[in-house]
Write a protein that binds this DNA or RNA. Structure first.
Lengths: 329, 329
DNA sequence: CTACTCTACTTAAGCGCGCAACTGAAGCGC
DNA sequence: GCGCTTCAGTTGCGCGCTTAAGTAGAGTAG
C-alpha cells in the first residue's frame, strides 16, 4: 500500500551492491561466485524492505512465466475438482509453478484473459464450447492439457465413464444381482458423464451375457424417485447402477420407505463416494474417484510438456477410480 | 505453439503502420484520431496473425495488472464459493478485471506467489493463518479485501453466523417450538462458523426469553445421530437448529426411523439450502446464503478500493442470507 | 504568403528485471 | 615480473508494451 513499489534498485542501494548482484543472490543463480557475507547482506536488505520482485517484469525478462491456469466451465464443482487442484498444485510446486483456477461460463470469451495473464500452460478441464476450445488451441500458450469429462469429448479422460459403469455392473453381478437398472440424472449439464457411464454399463452387460440395463431417469424428488423404483421392481430389476451417490442415496431412502430390503431385494451402487455415502443405512457401495492420482497424472503431463519432453506413455486411466465395497450391494 | 511469439511489431509490419498505432487501435485509446480505414487494417492484421499482447509486457508498461486473486484456505468449498466467484467475476468483468482462484493450504508460504503474479487486488476468503495474513498485509498489493468466515475472525463477514442462528431460532419459535436444541458439527475445520451460529442461537433465545439451547455434537453416522436425537427428546427439545443442511437431513432421517413426526414432534431448520433440502420428506426449512449478493458486495468493495474511492457505507450483511420456509418447521 | 490548427500518424522513453559479457583485483606457478 | 586463472563483483542490453511528445502534411484564416 506504499506509494512507490520497492524495486531491486532499492535493495541494491541499501545493500551497497549492484542490481545484478541482488538478482543473482535472490535467484540463487548458479555459475556465480558470491561469498556468503554478501549474500547475507542482500537478503537482509531485501527482507527489511519487504521486497518482492515484480512478477510482470520478471516474466517479461525471463520470457517465461510460472503460472498454470486451470480453465473450467461453470459445471458444479464438487469436492473432486478442488482435490485434483490441490494435487496438481502440490506436484508442480517444487518446479516453482503456481496453479490458478479460472471459471469460464459458456458465454464468456476467453481472449481477454490473455491480456491479464501469461500462463506457461493451461489445463482445460472439460470443453469450454467449440469457439473457445478452438481459440485456445490457436493461442500462443506454451502447453495445453485438454481434459475431457468423458470418453465422448476430445481430450484426456480423468474420470473414465466406461470403466466406471463396468465396475458397477461387475460388482452387482458378483453379488448375484443379474437384472440391472440404470438411474439416469435429471440434469442436462452432466449428460456427457452419464452417457459414458451408461455405455460402460451396457458394455459390461453384453460381455457378461446378461440382459440390457433398464434405464430410467430419476427425478430428484421423493415421489418421482419412488415411481422409478416401482418401475424397476416391476421390470424385475434387482441391482441398480446409479449415475452418482446423490441418486443412489435417494433410491435407498425411497426403497426403504416402501419396505424394500437393501441389498437383498435391491442392490445399489453409486459413484463419487460422498461423505454421506459411508453413513447411510446400509453404507453405500460406490465407485470413487482418486483425485490425488488424477492430479499427479495431470501434473506429470504438464511438467513433461513444459520441459518439451514427450509425455510418458503411461496408461492414463490406470488407478483413477476404485470400487469401494460397502453393504448396499 | 509456434516458435516465436507474434508481437505488436509483426502486426505493425503487416498493417504497414508503426507499433504505436497498433497499440492505440487495439486499446481503443482515447484522444487519438485514427481513421476507421487504418483501424480496420490493424485489426485485420492482428486477427490474421492471432495476435495476443503479452500480458507481462502490458502490465509492466502500464504499471497495473488486471488480475484479481481470490485466496482461499483448503476449506471444503461447497457450491457457494464458486457461486460467489461467478458473481464477483461477472461484476468486475466490465472493468476489464479477471478473477482467479488460488488455494492456499495452511502450510504453504504465500511469498512465492508474487513471483508468479502481480494482482491489482486480492480477496482473502477466510484466514490463511497468522503469518500469511500478516505477510499479505505487508506485501505491496494494491488492495486487499479481507473476508472472514464468521464474526469471530478479522475481516468483513459474508456469511453472518449470528444472524443465521437468530433466524433459525425465531422461525422455530414462531411455529411454536420453544425448547431449542443445537446440532454441532463433528468437524474441526468449521468450528469458527459453528461458534458464531451458536452464539446467534443463544442470543435469540435470551432475547425471546426461552431456555438456553441444548447443544449436542452430531456424529455423522446413523447410530451416533440417533443417540443425539434421543438425548434431545429426553431433554424436551422440540426444535433443532442444525449447523447445516447435511446435519439437518441426517436428523430428519434418523428421527423418522424412530417414528418421530416432523415437524409436529420435532422441527428442524438447516443452513445452506443444498439441492437435496428441497426434496427431503418433509422439505427442509433452511437459512440460505445468497451468493449473488455476496459477490456483488465484494466486487463493489474491490472496485472502490482499486479506484482509490472510500468504500460505500452500505451495511455488509444486508440481504446476504434469507430464510427459506418449507415444511420441516 | 505566412501563421496557425487539425489530422494522422511516428519516434522514443521508459516500466523492472534477468542474464550475458565484461572488468579489476587477488592468487599462483615458474 | 609475467601470464594465467579464479574471485567478486559491475555494466548494459533487451524482453514487448504503453504513451507522452513530436512532426509532416493538408487545410484554413487573415
Amino acid at each position: 500500500m506504499s506509494d512507490r513499489r520497492v524495486t531491486a534498485d532499492d535493495v541494491a542501494r541499501l545493500a551497497g551492491v549492484s542490481r545484478a548482484t541482488v538478482s543473482y543472490v535472490l535467484n540463487d543463480h548458479p555459475h556465480q561466485t558470491i561469498p556468503e557475507a554478501t549474500r547475507e547482506k542482500v537478503r537482509r536488505a531485501a527482507a527489511s524492505l519487504d521486497y518482492t520482485p515484480l512478477a510482470s517484469a520478471r516474466i517479461l525478462s525471463r520470457g517465461r512465466s510460472d503460472v498454470v491456469v486451470m480453465l473450467i466451465p461453470d459445471l458444479p464443482l464438487g469436492s473432486v475438482v478442488p482435490a485434483v487442484m490441490d494435487s496438481v498444485a502440490e506436484t508442480i510446486a517444487p518446479n516453482g509453478l503456481e496453479l490458478f483456477l479460472h471459471r469460464c461460463p459458456p458465454g464468456r470469451d476467453i481472449k481477454n484473459l490473455w491480456n491479464a495473464i501469461t500462463p506457461v500452460a493451461v489445463i482445460r478441464l472439460g470443453s469450454l464450447g467449440p469457439e473457445n476450445d478452438e481459440s485456445l488451441r490457436r493461442s500462443q500458450i506454451g502447453f495445453l492439457v485438454e481434459l475431457a469429462n468423458s470418453e465422448l469429448e476430445q481430450g484426456l479422460v480423468l474420470f473414465p465413464g466406461l470403466e466406471t459403469g463396468e465396475l458397477q455392473v461387475r460388482h452387482l453381478v458378483e453379488r448375484g444381482h443379474l437384472r440391472i437398472g440404470y438411474a439416469w440424472p435429471d440434469d442436462d449439464r452432466v449428460t456427457n458423464f452419464a452417457s459414458a457411464r451408461l455405455r460402460g454399463v451396457q458394455k459390461a452387460c453384453a460381455e457378461l451375457g446378461i440382459a440390457e440395463p433398464v434405464v430410467l431417469t430419476l427425478p430428484f424428488n421423493p415421489a418421482g424417485a419412488a415411481a422409478s423404483v416401482d418401475s424397476w421392481r416391476e421390470a424385475g430389476v434387482d441391482g441398480i447402477c446409479a449415475f452418482n451417490d446423490e441418486l443412489a442415496l435417494a433410491i435407498i431412502r425411497v426403497a426403504q420407505l416402501r419396505g424394500i430390503e437393501i441389498p437383498q431385494d435391491l442392490a445399489v451402487v453409486g459413484v463419487d463416494d460422498l461423505p454421506q455415502a459411508a453413513f447411510s443405512v446400509p453404507p453405500l457401495s460406490t465407485v470413487a474417484p482418486r483425485p490425488d492420482k488424477m492430479g499427479q497424472f495431470v501434473a506429470r503431463r504438464l511438467l513433461d510438456g513444459i520441459a518439451g519432453r514427450e509425455p510418458g506413455s503411461l496408461d492414463p486411466s490406470d488407478g483413477f477410480i476404485r470400487l469401494i465395497e460397502r453393504d448396499s450391494a
